[in-house]
Simulated scan of single mutants.
Amino acid sequence: MCIALFLWQAHPLYPFFLLHNRDEYFSRPTEPVAWWDNGDILGGRDGLAGGTWLACSRNCKIAFVTNVREVAKGPQPKSRGDLPVRYLESKMNPTEFAEEVVMEAHQYSGFNLILVDLCSKSMIYVTNRPKDDKALVSEVPPGIHILSNASLDTPWPKAVLLRSNFEKFLEKYGAGELPAEDMADKLMRDTTKADKTTPPGVYSVEFEYLLSSIFVEANTEQGCYGTRSISALSVKTNGEVSFYEKYLKESWKEHKVSYIMEQTGTS
């Protein structure tokens, strides 16, 4: 489970601004945000399957994925974390890669995938669990968007709360610089729970209740589960990228990586 709020082509200083929580079992091996072996991909890495939930590249690309809340069934499917990596390693633009993913979408459990190319100002949303017979692939319009474990911009209570609190920050800072680290701390560590009658009802009422906050903390029969990393990823109009991460590894740690995107044209 994860939740992401992002601002796309709707701010004079930031063509892209993202706040993101990754929720996972604490026992699952995970590597914090770092440059990968080839030095072209920056992101966290799942130590079990090898993929990522959120990463970016030197050449204008960003990708992140969330699962769709559903009860698992059937044989072990392909890892959804491979999808962002494949996009970032490819020479395809978001639309081209989305078309490739659709051809194999049935091989994965439910997912939501965001593909970004800053150079061409393109953002595409891909899902294999479309809501109300909508398209599997769609272009994301400029504005504020929320992605959790249902379709893009589904108004789950915690999504509505996060958007509302984010908008208050925007009102305060206007067209100026946004305090990304402060926003991550204040907005993404919110433990406010939804009313027990409002969650989607995929899991038990008690587990749904524990998952209904932006920042998740839960004890389950499989072990501790909850938010393991909080990220703020921003791209300025001059191509400056800042990737801040606060992550849990025995205790909470934090670090930040900055670089300039290579704006050499569309990919």
Rank of each mutant, 00 (worst) to 15 (best):
C2L: 12
A4P: 04
W8S: 02
P12G: 05
Y14H: 04
P15G: 09
L18G: 01
H20I: 00
N21W: 08
E24W: 08
Y25D: 05
R28W: 12
P29F: 14
P32S: 07
V33I: 11
A34Y: 09
W36S: 02
N38P: 01
D40T: 13
D40F: 07
I41V: 15
D46L: 06
L48A: 06
G51A: 06
G51C: 03
L54C: 04
A55M: 08
A55G: 15
A55Q: 04
C56H: 02
C56F: 05
R58Q: 11
V65C: 06
V65R: 00
E70W: 09
V71P: 00
P75M: 11
K78H: 13
L83R: 01
L83G: 07
V85G: 00
R86P: 01
Y87P: 04
E89L: 10
E89Q: 14
M92Y: 10
N93T: 11
E99L: 10
E100H: 12
V102L: 15
H106D: 12
V116E: 02
D117W: 05
D117S: 07
L118C: 07
S122V: 11
K131A: 13
D132S: 10
D132Q: 13
D132L: 15
D133G: 04
D133Y: 08
K134P: 00
K134I: 00
I144F: 09
L152D: 09
W156L: 14
P157Q: 07
A159T: 14
L162K: 01
S164C: 07
K168T: 14
E171K: 14
Y173A: 03
Y173G: 01
G174Q: 03
L178Y: 03
L178S: 02
A180N: 00
A180L: 12
A180G: 12
D182R: 05
M183W: 06
M183A: 06
K186N: 03
K186E: 13
L187H: 04
R189Y: 08
T192V: 15
T192I: 14
T192Y: 11
K193H: 15
D195P: 06
D195W: 07
K196I: 15
K196D: 13
G201H: 04
E208D: 14
E208L: 12
L211K: 04
L211D: 10
S212F: 13
I214K: 07
F215C: 05
V216H: 12
E217V: 15
E221K: 02
T227H: 01
T227A: 02
A232L: 06
V235A: 15
K236D: 14
V241A: 06
F243N: 02
Y247H: 07
L248A: 04
S251A: 15
S251R: 09
W252E: 14
W252K: 03
W252C: 12
K253L: 14
K253W: 11
V257H: 05
S258M: 04
Y259I: 03
E262Y: 11
T266D: 08
S267D: 08
